[in-house]
Simulated scan of single mutants.
Amino acid sequence: MTVVIAGATGNVGSEVLRAVLAAGGKARGLVRAEKQLPEGAEVAIGDLNDPASLADAFQGATAAFLLSGYADMTGLLAAVQRAGLERVVLLSGGSAELGDLSNAVSAYMVRSEVAVRESGVPFTILRPSMFMTNTLDWLPQLRESDVVRAAFPDVAAAVLDPADIGAVAATALLNTGHENRTYRLTGPEALTPADRVRILAGILGRDLRFEGLSNEAARAQMTAAMPVEYVDAFFSFYVDGTLDESPVLPTVTDILGRPPRTFREWAQTHAASFS
């Protein structure tokens, strides 16, 4: 089975690619320009914002892993259907469940899910909780000092290892039984930013300290890094409390037959990145 994987060099897509290869599938990483992929993976050139560019990438493939939010999701799914792919796995997010089209983040996920559901192609939609890899955003601070300052200090989330998302996606891409389902994926425990700093400190052997940013400081910092409509979306989630990512669900265990990895396990694996 040949699986086309969007975002093949990203946090999740790279894990999907590795999981497909590990399971004995053929992984075809979809990239806009020639890039080095893990041994055994094919490279396909195409732009998901331009469905007409994808005919060669989809040729002979069985399934595709897609991300949400491309310019023409309906056209993209039409290209998938024309190519005769048997199934699609879409990476969405928990906020899609809110159905709030006034929220910029929720809106692009909702519209992407609608395009997938209406395409006629068998699908699996994944709605993961916050990624453990978001912790890597702290790297510049940790290179400068032992203090981590972050937004939304009181928000707990059942953070999830992207490797577990990749394993679930590979299972749905390579096997039947997951068609036309939506899976909410979480990690094994709800952690605040301070909890993650504490765990990371123990692994790194450093006396790390956490300081929560005020909402005003967080908004200023985020506005410098992303469009204001996205900043408003995250404030809706985590200040207004419209999105709760703290519940721990058994979905990963049910699908993989093992529990999701803990943050401690993730941090131990990635400790070298923080040194």
Rank of each mutant, 00 (worst) to 15 (best):
G166F: 01
R143K: 13
P140T: 08
R111W: 10
R87V: 02
G75L: 11
V110I: 14
G187S: 03
T135C: 04
L98P: 09
V155N: 11
G99M: 10
L66E: 02
I45L: 13
F58E: 00
P122W: 02
Q141Y: 15
V105W: 14
T135P: 00
Y108W: 12
A158D: 09
L136S: 06
G99A: 10
L101N: 11
G94E: 14
I125M: 03
A156T: 08
V110C: 13
L174M: 01
L85C: 03
L142Q: 11
A44M: 07
M130S: 12
A104E: 09
E86F: 00
L101K: 15
L126S: 02
D100N: 15
V116A: 00
D146V: 13
G40R: 11
V147M: 09
V155T: 15
L67D: 05
G84Q: 02
N49K: 12
A52Y: 06
A157G: 08
E113H: 06
A96F: 12
L126K: 04
S95T: 15
P140H: 10
L85W: 02
R149E: 08
A169K: 01
V110G: 14
M132G: 08
P162K: 04
S106L: 10
A78D: 10
L77Y: 03
L91G: 04
S92T: 07
A61M: 03
T124H: 00
A163C: 02
M109S: 12
A57L: 07
V114D: 13
S129P: 06
A115F: 03
D154P: 03
P140V: 12
V147S: 09
P188L: 07
E113N: 08
V148E: 10
L185W: 02
A150W: 14
S119C: 00
Y183Q: 04
A169V: 01
A71V: 08
